[in-house]
Design a protein around this nucleic acid. Structure first.
Length: 218
DNA sequence: AAAACGGGGGC
DNA sequence: GCCCCAGTTTT
């Protein structure tokens, strides 16, 4: 895909996602934009399906929906609430530790800047950028495995890691798409441009896509 | 029964 | 760079 074709690709994607029910970022649809909830839900979502994440978030936030309340729960209580999300033990410890840090060091508020967010254990670039964009409505590029895979399949970027994709997109992608790119591509990635056997024969972006590294498709 | 799965930390 | 973390869904 050539650089100037990104506008056309995004326009096609905007139409295509209307056909799919599940919102890409279930977090916001079910839990709202509160930065603390976005942060916690995003941690819960790692290697875990949307619906499982949403249900676990609801159970946890019923017990504690602020850093103050969360810090007063025990790790065991958090574990019990979030089971069966993947890696529930590590996640429970991370959520507890982050909540305590927020109370002790940041007056119980979630920091708004990327660099501070990245200092927390359990918060990497994907999570931090999601908090910045969804939680605070500020520009950011949240690159998960779908964004990384699809941008490389298109041939729009040529990178080896999601972090490299984030930096490449930050340079190339027009500002107006920064916040929506994750939402669009996650939905597209779940329904059409799947990791294994993508549905190329029915893809609305077939002509724009280089299909880099696609061996099997349907 | 395998493979696949919406990252991140520790080393 | 490599290995670990876990339960669920898809093939």
């Amino acid at each position: 895909m050539r650089d100037e074709q990104i506008h056309e690709a995004i326009a096609i994607l905007n139409e295509a996602v209307k056909a799919w029910v599940s919102p890409a970022v279930t977090i916001v649809a079910t839990q709202g934009h509160d930065p603390f909830k976005v942060l916690v839900s995003c941690i819960l979502s790692l290697r875990t399906r949307d619906q499982t994440t949403a249900e676990a978030s609801s159970r946890l936030f019923a017990l504690a929906d602020t850093p103050q309340k969360m810090a007063h729960l025990t790790v065991a209580e958090i574990e019990q609430a979030i089971y069966p999300v993947g890696f529930y033990r590590v996640k429970a410890e991370q959520i507890h530790a982050i909540s305590q840090s927020l109370c002790d060091l940041y007056q119980g508020a979630v920091p708004e800047d990327l660099e501070t967010l990245l200092t927390f254990k359990g918060v990497g670039r994907k999570t931090a950028n999601l908090v910045v964009t969804l939680g605070f409505g500020k520009p950011g590029i949240c690159v998960d495995i779908h964004v990384h895979r699809i941008c490389n399949r298109w041939g729009y970027v040529k990178t080896n890691t999601p972090e490299q994709t984030e930096f490449a997109l930050r340079k190339k992608l027009p500002d107006q798409y920064w916040i929506i790119i994750n939402d669009l591509l996650v939905t597209f990635g779940q329904n059409q441009c799947t990791p294994v056997s993508p549905r190329c024969s029915t893809c609305p972006l077939y002509q724009l896509c280089d299909r880099v590294g696609v061996s099997k498709s349907r």
